[in-house]
């Protein structure tokens, strides 16, 4: 893919774990690429599939959903529900040529600033490699 392509990544992160980790990564001045837009949600369990679909059709090249590790969700099981929804999208979106890699689910705990920075940088690199979302240039979405 063109070396000029800079991906836009949207991340839905839960308030209690991954958002806190993102904050930590920032205050610890860890190096992160500027391609990420964070959306803070109370829990990954509230990320309806349509948020992810809308993001991909509206200019995002990849979507990250990230929350508490299994057993740590502050609403007990929201992250398990998120896992089923991402699994569902993994089955639907590739049928229309939207690569599975564009929707990523990770668990990043509140103290894992390092992991957050590494996850984000890794994902951005991966999507840069993959190239832009087809929807970016489509008049019909």
């Amino acid at each position: 893919m063109s070396s000029e392509f800079e991906p836009t990544i949207l991340a839905f992160v839960c308030n209690w774990c991954t958002y806190t980790a993102a904050d930590l990564a920032g205050t610890s001045r860890m190096v992160q690429q500027p391609n990420l837009r964070l959306v803070r949600v109370m829990c990954t369990g509230m990320v309806d599939p349509k948020y992810i679909v809308k993001s991909l059709l509206s200019g995002a090249d990849g979507v990250l959903v990230s929350g508490c590790h299994p057993g740590d969700c502050h609403y007990i099981n929201g992250n398990y529900k998120a896992r089923r929804r991402v699994k569902l999208l993994n089955e639907i979106l590739p049928q229309f040529g939207i690569e599975r890699e564009r929707v990523k689910l990770t668990w990043v705990g509140a103290s894992e600033g390092n992991e957050f920075a590494a996850t984000v940088n890794g994902f951005i690199n991966e999507i840069r490699e993959l190239g832009p979302m087809e929807a970016r240039s489509m008049a019909v979405v």
Partner: peptide
């Protein structure tokens, strides 16, 4: 519904 131990391949471990 969900199970605690399922669809592990859906979760990425990038760090």
């Amino acid at each position: 519904v969900f199970k605690e131990d399922e669809f592990q391949e859906t979760v990425s471990h990038m760090a």
